[in-house]
Design a binder for these strands. Sequence first.
DNA 1: CTGGGGAAGGGGCCC
DNA 2: AGGGCCCCTTCCCCA
Length: 261
Amino acid sequence: MPRSFLVKKHFSANKKPNYSELESQRVYIAPYLYDKYASIPLIPQPEILSTTAYYPPVVWDTGLITTIFTAEPDFQSSPTSPAIEGSKPLDLSSFSSEDDESGKTSDPPSPASSATEAEKFHCGQCNKSYSTFAGLSKHKQLHCDSQNRKSFSCKYCEKEYVSLGALKMHIRSHTLPCVCKICGKAFSRPWLLQGHIRTHTGEKPFSCTHCNRAFADRSNLRAHLQTHSDVKKYQCKTCSRTFSRMSLLHKHEETGCSGGH
DNA sequence: CTGGGGAAGGGGCCC
DNA sequence: AGGGCCCCTTCCCCA
């Protein structure tokens, strides 16, 4: 069943996008998806056009996919993108629940906790460390340099951001420039569209090493891995019962933990 | 009712 | 400085 209820419609009537600075932006297909790279000049759909300039959407169709497959790569595939090598399932054994316990958790990322001797740039305000000056500068701009903080307000909603980049990214959630030609769903970012495309292709590159299941989404695999663990990640403070997902814990708490489970 | 899967949104960090 | 990717989280559906 389509989950269009979760997808903001691209043709909202009260949208009046006119962000000229975003006009020239193109949406790229990430290289790790099809092992090719393409820059796609786009033709806005009539129903989302206004008399003002508009943020051009990506329109997916089979012809586009063909273009992607035949396009000359414009840059090398990112080494930090282990994801998709053809349609070969990925071995995510490193994402076992044990690793999750010792590694990243739902806690906010803590640069200091992963600090190495190379992280020699320290924030005087909060003592966090960064390996590069650029990293420290961005941190200070976002969090610890209040006198330099600026407010970039979204014209579509009440949200404010401390950087133009953050605002631009947020605005995409309003303009939804990435449109699936197959079903018409619109997404804010190319990789969200990529994930969506997998629902059409059936591609599931993330496989569980404990069973034969495979997943289209890494996070879903991570959640699945919890089901193989006796002691799950999310624990009720009242009854100590553990759950594989935070949502299940929340549901457990909301329905009233009796403390005796 | 509960647990798990599918799909998607969005913030933060790294390059 | 900005794009890409990772990760967490949420929501809904279904068995």
